[in-house]
Design a binder for these strands. Structure first.
Length: 273
DNA sequence: AGTGCGACCCGAACGC
DNA sequence: TGCGTTCGGGTCGCAC
């Protein structure tokens, strides 16, 4: 599942290949994934040149001359940059370039979305407008988190998955962050103390940095685009694990906010002792 | 405003 | 074995 580290990996690889290419045609095989007008999407991209590729949280932004293409891979979205070939199954959007190559977006579950907006609307007319700070942002401090969480009676796990609070953490990494921070995923978000918030920030940075170095996580059916395969799954401490690497007690699995959650009851207490 | 949950998808995994 | 059912993943939109 592409989370921030996976998306960052994809961004770097794509940027290397696509900078300065001009889009000569766009084929849309599944219109519902284009959240802005599909006809405008196609019309406005043709003739545009890709000038940069950026990432905000888990969102990719292909910057062109006049428009920004916003893309979210959700769980299984992948890009393939190849010679022009006949689109395969599950390839919903194809971008053709002036060098004869194509960028194919494949997404078996059709969960991914794209927006095309004028450059000055990027943070106005897209979901990027709501994103909270990334773990790497210097603005992400314990006082920022405390302010954001002070009215939240939801489990901290659910709060950390909320991209309006922190952007970039997904289900796997939230479990890892809470384990490393020794905070129970069930603890009410407004009850965390400064020290716990500090640990969450520090752990988020460390875990995401390490995951980016590893090229992200490859788990279940997910493989990254362009043959990029991460190996962070080998470094996971709790997510999908059976035994706690610290105390050797059984890792428990529960549902929090509908998401499968792995934690160590012994190392991650709700109450300080 | 905060919260919870269904909808969106469909292949894989699971249960019988 | 074959078939039907459940699950999962992030985000949005809606109901309360």
């Amino acid at each position: 599942m592409p989370e921030l580290p996976e998306v960052e990996t994809v961004r770097k690889v794509l940027k290397k290949d696509l900078i300065n290419l001009e889009i000569t045609n766009v084929i849309i095989n599944y219109e519902d994934m284009i959240k802005t007008d599909p006809k405008e999407f196609k019309k406005n991209l043709i003739g545009s040149k890709i000038v940069d590729i950026k990432r905000y949280g888990k969102w990719l932004v292909f910057e062109t001359t006049n428009y920004d293409l916003v893309s979210h891979l959700r769980m299984e979205g992948k890009y393939f940059y190849t010679d022009k070939v006949k689109p395969l199954k599950h390839e919903h959007v194809i971008f053709e370039f002036n060098n004869g190559k194509v960028l194919r977006y494949k997404d078996v579950r059709k969960f991914g979305v794209m927006y095309l907006v004028k450059k000055d609307k990027l943070f106005i007319d897209t979901p990027l407008s709501k994103l909270g700070y990334e773990p790497f942002a210097k603005e992400l401090t314990s006082s920022y988190l405390k302010e954001k969480l002070k009215t939240k009676k939801i489990p901290i796990k659910t709060a950390l998955l909320d991209q309006e609070i922190i952007s970039g953490l997904g289900n796997i990494y939230v479990d890892e962050v809470l384990f490393k921070s020794a905070v129970s995923p069930f603890k009410k978000a407004n009850l965390l103390n400064d020290l716990e918030l500090e640990r969450i920030i520090t752990s988020s940075k460390e875990i995401l940095t390490e995951a980016i170095k590893s090229g992200g996580t490859t788990i279940r059916s997910y493989t990254s685009s362009l043959g990029v395969t991460g190996n962070y799954q080998d470094k996971l401490m709790v997510h999908t694990k059976k035994k706690c690497p610290i105390c050797n007690q059984d890792i428990l699995k529960a549902k929090i906010g509908g998401r499968s959650t792995y934690y160590c009851k012994n190392c991650q207490k709700v109450q300080d002792e």
